[in-house]
Design a protein around this nucleic acid. Structure first.
Lengths: 131, 131
DNA sequence: ACTATTTCCTACTATGTCAATAGGTTTATC
DNA sequence: GATAAACCTATTGACATAGTAGGAAATAGT
């Protein structure tokens, strides 16, 4: 299940794309348009800056801005950054799952196939497709 | 993310299918073969009985048994029963989400399409495909 | 009837994540 | 120097996850 972080973040990206006139867009405006708590968006947007998805400018006249054209972003990369992983099943979320049954597990191939389908969809979908 | 409930439940179904000789299969055996806590499986299996996926028989010689042939079960129906919903996004999980932005939301169509793909995959996959 | 084995049932719990909120500091513009 | 914005750290309530614990009821064989 995609959380609000991913969903809100995606909407911020769309908002930035739609209102892009070259200048920086203040978060306050985005929060109002999207009807999301500005305070909460700060957390999300911070992650997006750190992840290099957008850039921010402090001070009066500041705000946020996309660093690439909308067609250069995929929904998958945006969600992965915010959700940590878009993995459908813990067994595939690399790291901590060193499941001893991996070799004989009857469900693993299916999960892999499923995960592939999910990834294919999300990484083929561009931000520009949502405008 | 599919939780252990759904994943373990699916493995129980596979185990029941593989070891089906007409008699009832005790949970103890399944727990040992699958290396999952029997106590925890009790909770999961109970849901599956209530949902009509399998049937149980108490007492000595008792256990659990499939009620249909493996090719008559879809992975989707098994997971839906155990997970409550396999919805990828809260906005689509019917009930509580009466989102006021539904009409103008730019992301909703994508989530619907995504959800459709997920459902198509899981409901076309049969239990018998995993044996 | 007794015993063993199994499901069935209720309750509890530790841990972690989600979705925020709160309040302040720094940075840039006019 | 006032204003407006990003940036930063910390805290919180609610809920879900992944179990554990202990026993009651049902069934089969002896």
């Amino acid at each position: 299940m995609i959380s609000t972080k991913g969903r809100y973040g995606l909407r911020v990206m769309i908002d930035l794309a739609q209102n892009n006139d070259g200048s920086y867009i203040p978060l306050k405006d985005i929060a109002e348009r999207q009807e999301i708590s500005k305070k909460y968006l700060e957390i999300i947007v911070k992650q997006m800056v750190e992840g290099g998805l957008i850039k921010g400018l402090s001070g009066k006249g500041g705000g946020y801005k996309l660093v690439k054209k909308p067609e250069k972003y995929t929904v998958g990369e945006i969600l992965t950054l915010l959700e940590g992983t878009i993995c459908s099943v813990a067994c595939l979320a690399d790291k901590h799952y060193d499941c001893p049954r991996r070799k004989k597990c009857e469900t693993l191939p299916m999960w892999k196939e499923f995960d592939g389908i999910v990834h294919d969809y999300l990484y083929s979908k561009k931000l520009s497709d949502l405008l």
